[in-house]
Write a protein that binds this DNA or RNA. Structure first.
Lengths: 221, 221
DNA sequence: GTCTATAACTTGATAGAC
DNA sequence: GTCTATCAAGTTATAGAC
């Protein structure tokens, strides 16, 4: 056994949290899968919630540093002009997918965890507000410069929608077997990323026209 | 007390599942908030999971019927030609938001529940495959006709991404207080819907160009 | 239909020996 | 650092009186 107890706990917790969610994963399920003692979890990480935070930060902090570096490169390349929209989006999205291709950084497991945490409890928002929001604001600012004609509230809504796309892309295609072989996430990470960037680039550039919503679905039901 | 026990259980479970998630919500939390007896849950709904299904189907079935009707109206209006893309998207998205504005149909609560269930466990996928997939395939077919030049696998990926947007929009903006007042979901449901439709319309129409992903982030780390 | 009582089990956490 | 043993509380579910 090459890995330490602490690492085995982190790896196993990451996997199970990603597969089943935080609440649905008991510490006992983790110790069974990791083949460690129950008390060792409380020794290395005080509580279940602290374990989740450790699991999360282990991957998220390096990824955010990478995002930060890529964003700086975008801005340097643009000089005084507005940065390139697609490059900015890419700087945000890429690290998660690069990570997903690298077994040493959790492979596709962590990616799914993030997608899941997004919708579960308020755990994610709390961690986000500590480690994620400053970076997000920097990206928002870069996007605003890349799209100088877009009103601010419209931009913020689009960022909100876009985060949903990214989260969905991260979560993966499990449960979408409807579309048979068409969605193959195992191979072709680059192609998927390229599709996502196209999709978001066009979406952010959408004209701002607020026609009346047209439906007359009427009545009640 | 105007509502029946059964209805009170459904309403309360809907709210708590939406707020805390399925796993994190105990039956005892529900009975306490609904002021009913624990056994009554098992009398009216056999199990916790069956309760979730009842909560879900109560709103989802009518919404899906509405989607179906709206889609038919799109197709009738188009005659033999391709249906209007934005109208098709609207037919899919609208019912959830109309529902969210109508207290009698759960108001914004159910909307949030759907957004959340998406990422939690495999509960949603299982229910989807029973009640949602046939409808989804009909929409996919309508989208394919609205975008005749789009390759099928590209279309499926875009649907996948778009579901993420919709899910995020449904989930609401809680946790996004970063953007201060700019995202106000309480009022202006129509405006938000209009923004979402613009966003998705442009995204679905994005040109299909698969440039090499440009980054050279290199090395390892 | 609604209640009490309780069975049968799982949960996160801790004390204390080694 | 790692273990066993155990606590106190919480969990879903059910039996049976009314």
């Amino acid at each position: 056994m090459l890995s330490t107890t602490k690492e085995r706990i982190l790896d196993t917790a990451e996997r199970l949290f990603a597969e089943r969610g935080y609440s649905a994963t008991s510490l006992r399920a983790i110790i069974a899968a990791a083949d460690v003692n129950l008390a060792s979890i409380h020794y290395h990480f005080d509580s279940k919630e602290a374990l989740l935070e450790a699991v999360f930060l282990r991957r998220a902090l390096p990824a955010n540093e990478e995002r930060s570096r890529l964003l700086e490169a975008c801005e340097r390349a643009a000089g005084d002009g507005p940065p390139d929209l697609k490059k900015v989006i890419e700087a945000f999205v890429m690290p998660a997918f690069l990570q997903a291709k690298d077994p040493a950084r959790g492979g596709p497991v962590f990616r799914r965890l993030v997608g899941r945490l997004y919708a579960e409890g308020d755990l994610m928002p709390r961690m986000i507000s500590k480690h994620f929001i400053p970076l997000l604001l920097r990206f928002a600012s870069a996007l605003a410069r890349a799209l100088p004609d877009l009103p601010q509230d419209e931009l913020y809504w689009r960022i909100h929608f876009a985060m949903g796309c990214v989260s969905q892309a991260l979560r993966g295609t499990s449960g979408w077997e409807v579309f048979q072989g068409a969605l193959q996430e195992s191979r072709d990470t680059e192609l998927m990323l390229s599709r996502l960037l196209n999709f978001l680039d066009a979406a952010f550039r959408a004209p701002v026209v607020h026609s009346q919503v047209s439906v007359a679905v009427g009545e009640d039901r």
